[in-house]
Simulated assay, not measured.
Amino acid sequence: MLVQIPVTAIVLALGLALLVTPLVKKYAFKVGALDRPDQRKVHQRVMPRLGGLAIYVSFIAAVLLTMDITLQVCGLLVGGTLIIILGFFDDTRGLSPRLKLAGQIIAAAAVIPFGLEVNSLTNPFSNEMPILLGYLSIPVTVLWIVSVTNAVNLIDGLDGLAGGTSFISALTLAGVVWIETTTSGVFPGQSEAVALALILVASIVGFLRYNFYPAKIFLGDSGSMYLGFSLASLSIMGMAKSATFISVIIPVVILGIPLLDTVFAIVRRYCGRRPIFQPDKEHLHHRLIQMGLSHRQAVLSIYGVNVVLGLSAIVLTLISPKQAVIFLVILSTVILMAANKIGVAGTGGQAPIVPQPNKQQRS
């Protein structure tokens, strides 16, 4: 069984995103979904957010009009709808971190009855004997989805950053699952995961036309949470049935930038005895600008790292497990050294601070 490229769905999602985003921009002004500049933020003027609504509408419409709605696809749509509603209220009214977290947990749990669940983990010592999670499957699934949702949400600090990162991650995910299907056969959900990931890619590309620097509209929490939620769910759909231990690591590599930035933020705030949920300006994109990069250069630099991680994920699917372990050790060492050098790891590294003129700020 071969995976079919959903050309019609891709074209439809791209076209809808290009058409719907300007309408969502006007709607954001109407309902007061506006992002106002403050000391922590980079942009200097009031900007409409709620851009995630455009991606959601484009993706949902393309899926409903062109794909068979299986149980897992239905779960993705239901969970995505819940997360976009949560993001809508956060973008228009503002929600407390605890309330947002509760909503994310509900949305993540909602996909489980539809078969989107991590039931087992592959055993690194025996691919023939997977580790069954049993009662732990639900908390593990919820933890993964909520973690990725918040990780993408946290990196949404520069024009086009979260959208571009999600674009590269979704494209890589489609490529990795495609390779898995040709080497191991198609498992239930894998062909759907490829199609859905490519439709998501098209929706993001259409939105990035208006979101890349200088942005005309922001993703908002609705968009960054929706993208994170979708990527996490698609990784479960596409990779959970794979038989190799490395397949457990691949989604982490694909989503390396947002996940690592989140981990470093937690470590940084813990070591500094600050609340975990307290925002700061020490994320990767902030540090790159403080080092002297322009807004565009910082975003493109992170895109480049994402591409490298994406290619690394593809390499992991093509080499032996022993080679993959060595590759992962080298990759992890390089990442930790770079993070410490830039100053995002909270382990003592400090990047040089260069004052930036306003024209390089998010606007």
Rank of each mutant, 00 (worst) to 15 (best):
L316S: 08
P124R: 00
Y56Q: 02
I302C: 10
G346E: 10
Y27N: 04
L198C: 06
M1G: 12
I302G: 06
I105A: 11
A28V: 07
V31R: 11
Y210I: 03
L50C: 08
L12S: 00
P352L: 12
K281R: 15
L161A: 04
V78A: 06
R268W: 09
I314F: 14
V3D: 05
T66P: 00
L121I: 00
P113E: 09
L208C: 05
G79F: 11
F29H: 14
S230E: 12
G80Y: 00
F207H: 04
F245V: 00
K359D: 14
G164K: 03
K216V: 05
L331E: 10
V31I: 15
S147L: 12
F125P: 01
I84F: 01
V148M: 01
W178E: 11
I342A: 09
A17R: 05
I112M: 14
A110L: 10
I155F: 04
F264S: 03
P22E: 08
T183F: 09
A28T: 08
E117L: 15
F89I: 07
I254M: 07
F29C: 04
G304S: 12
Q297Y: 09
I266P: 01
R45P: 00
L219S: 03
L14C: 08
P48V: 01
V118Q: 00
I84H: 02
V308I: 15
P188K: 11
L293I: 02
T141W: 03
V11F: 15
A170K: 03
K26P: 04
I353M: 12
I276P: 09
I199D: 03
D90N: 02
V344E: 05
L288H: 09
